[in-house]
Simulated assay, not measured.
Amino acid sequence: MTLQDRERIAAGLADGLSYAEIARRLDRPNSTITREVARNGGPTGYRSQQAHQATIQRARRGTPAPPRAPGSPGRVMEEELVELAVRTGLPKTSARVHIDLLLSEDGKRTAAELAHRLNISPATVSLAVNFLVELGFIRRERSPQRRRDIYVVDDDAWYHSIVTGRRQTLDTVQATTAAAEIYGLDSPVGQRLVKAAAFLERVSLDMIDSADRWRTLLA
Rank of each mutant, 00 (worst) to 15 (best):
P91Q: 01
A180E: 04
L13Q: 04
T93V: 13
A115V: 08
Q50K: 05
L101M: 09
R146H: 06
A111N: 04
T55K: 09
A65M: 02
D209E: 15
W214H: 14
A175F: 02
P73K: 08
W158T: 01
A128S: 15
V97I: 14
E105G: 02
A198Q: 14
E141H: 10
N130D: 15
A54Q: 12
D171I: 04
K195N: 07
D212E: 15
Q53S: 07
A128C: 09
T164S: 13
E36D: 09
T34L: 13
A54C: 04
D27Q: 04
H160F: 08
W158H: 04
V194S: 10
F131P: 00
R6E: 05
A180S: 13
H52N: 11
V97G: 10
T44L: 11
E80P: 00
A196V: 10
Y46L: 04
T93E: 10
V194K: 10
A180T: 03
M77L: 15
S210C: 08
I33M: 02
A175T: 10
H116T: 14
R28C: 04
H52Y: 15
V76M: 14
I182C: 01
A65N: 04
G89F: 11
S48D: 04
Q50H: 07
H52W: 13
A123C: 00
H116E: 15
T110F: 07
G165S: 15
A20K: 13
F131M: 01
P43C: 03
D206M: 12
T172H: 07
R68W: 00
L84M: 13
L127A: 11
I138L: 10
D154Y: 05
R35G: 07
D27S: 09
E105V: 14
A11S: 13
L193G: 04
A23P: 00
N119L: 10
R202N: 11
L217Q: 12
L135P: 00
R146S: 12
S210N: 07
D171W: 02
S161D: 04
R8V: 01
V76T: 15
R167G: 09
D206S: 12
L132W: 03
R60E: 01
I208F: 06
I208S: 07
A54S: 12
L114I: 14
E79A: 12
G165T: 12
P144T: 13
A95V: 09
A111P: 01
R58K: 06
N130G: 15
E78V: 11
D15R: 15
G165M: 12
L81A: 14
D171H: 09
L218G: 06
Q168S: 08
V153Q: 11
T34P: 02
V76F: 03
Q145H: 08
N30L: 12
T88W: 00
